[in-house]
Amino acid sequence: MGKNAFRQLVALGAGLLFGAGLAVSQVTNPQKVLDFFDFAGHWDPSLALTFGGALLVTFFAFRPARSGRASGKGPALGGTYALPTKSDIDGSLLGGAALFGVGWGLVGLCVGPAVAALAFGEPKIYIFVAAMLCGTVLTKFAQTKSINRLKT
């Protein structure tokens, strides 16, 4: 089997594991998510363990991806690490994160769990994901337009 096929297999396995992990931890249940953020109500701290558990693994596994270490060995199946290159904390980052926070707090779905929860056949999830895709497409078009304006 070629390396490309292997990479596809890894992507499939990682996707399966990620989707199952989201469902096992119940991040795919908006009520569970909102209860986690509801410090003034019936606070359910479960998802702190989900976030902590994920970070515990990535903290050790991401060593080669940390600043200044990317020059070492590349990924096991060849190629290079494709990592974000931006480092400036700008208005777009902060404003975008804040907007996302409002959306997450209103409904209780973030992007990965929303996509994974499509599996459960709940119509409300389909409506949310459709609106989310619209938001991203609109923003992408607006960004391309403003970049083109800068070029001319």
């Binding site: 975008g96 907007l99 996302f100 929303a114 409506i127 949310f128 938001g135 960004q143």
Partner: peptide
């Protein structure tokens, strides 16, 4: 509304 701003916010915020 939540879906729209999640889509906009995650794109803007990268």
């Amino acid at each position: 509304l939540g879906g729209l701003i999640t889509g906009i916010g995650t794109r803007l915020g990268g």
